[in-house]
Amino acid sequence: MTPITLYGAEASGSISVEAALTLLDIPYTLIEGATWVEASARDRVGLQNPMRQIPTLVLPGGEVMTESAAILIYLADAHPSARLAPALDDERRRRQYLRWMVYVSSAIYSLHWIKPDVGRIGAPPELRSTVVDAVHDRIAFCWANMDRQLDPGRYLLGDELSVLDLYVTVVSRFGPWRERFYDVAPKMAPVVRRVDTDPRLRDFWARRFSFEDDEQ
């Protein structure tokens, strides 16, 4: 059977999906390409995803999945023994898991789409710096809002790692960068640091999203 194919790029939003596949020990074929800078990468992924964005996942039967949160939820649910998501009968944690997965996707991650081309929201190129600063302010506000409403254990939803932890760990590495994330989200900060240093992902992080706190 044809393996899973993932269109992605290092230090990008596809990294949370790649991290989940790594933890699940699922082999996949990676088609590398930074779609926000490479027309050829957009053209390649466009054959599967008309939005020409990553991550785009092609399942063995040819079915296409897009949207990082949806892919992560699917992978966790398809492999329940790995315990990367609250079980369906764990109703309270499951509700909060779904809530925050969608929140990170819609309230935070989606804002990064504006930054490469502020004309997407009708702003002139000469105002890019001002727009990006405003985007980063909004992202910081949204992280703070999430942090106020969570009561983490070792991880965001308790004492077990979930794909929500992977998602937040990756997205919090983007602007406005970790230093500000640590400031506005003090309860989530120890969790993402714990995922950063998870021995199961040490080699993966070094290869796909090399990162030090003082670099961000």
Rank of each mutant, 00 (worst) to 15 (best):
R52P: 05
L30Y: 06
L24I: 09
L24D: 07
A20N: 06
P27E: 14
E32P: 00
I54R: 08
Q48I: 00
V58C: 04
L59Q: 08
M51N: 14
A41K: 02
L30S: 11
L59K: 02
V64Q: 07
G46V: 04
M65F: 12
P50T: 00
T66P: 06
R44P: 02
T35C: 12
T35M: 06
T66Y: 08
L23W: 02
I54K: 11
G62D: 05
E67S: 05
V58T: 02
M65T: 01
E38A: 15
S40Y: 10
L24G: 02
V45M: 00
A34E: 14
T56N: 13
D25S: 15
I31P: 00
V58H: 04
R42A: 05
V45N: 05
D43C: 00
G61E: 10
P50D: 05
R42G: 10
Y28P: 10
G62N: 06
L30G: 08
N49W: 01
A41I: 01
W36H: 11
E67R: 03
L59I: 00
D43K: 13
V45I: 07
L21V: 06
V58D: 06
S40N: 13
N49V: 04
T22S: 14
P50H: 02
I26V: 15
A34S: 12
Q48V: 10
T22G: 08
P60K: 04
P60N: 01
R52E: 03
M65P: 01
R52V: 05
L21M: 12
T35K: 03
A20H: 05
V45H: 03
A34T: 03
L57M: 13
G61Y: 00
E63Q: 13
E32A: 06
P27L: 10
A34W: 09
R42V: 00
G46I: 02
L47I: 01
Q53H: 10
T22V: 11
P55E: 11
E32M: 12
G33Y: 06
L30N: 07
V58I: 13
Q48C: 06
V45P: 00
Q53I: 03
T56G: 04
R52H: 06
L23M: 10
A39Q: 14
T66R: 12
E32L: 09
R44V: 04
G62E: 09
I54D: 03
G46K: 07
N49L: 05
E38M: 13
V58M: 09
D25N: 15
T56P: 04
E67N: 09
P50A: 03
I26A: 10
E38K: 12
G62W: 05
G61V: 00
G61K: 03
G62P: 02
P27V: 11
T56C: 14
A41W: 01
E63Y: 02
P27S: 10
G62Y: 02
I31S: 11
A41S: 08
E63W: 01
E67P: 02
D43H: 04
R44F: 01
W36D: 09
P60V: 04
T66K: 07
E32N: 05
T29P: 03
T29L: 14
G33T: 04
P27R: 06
L47K: 13
V58K: 08
T35V: 15
T35S: 09
R52N: 07
N49M: 02
M65W: 09
T29I: 15
T35F: 07
I26E: 15
T29N: 15
L21F: 05
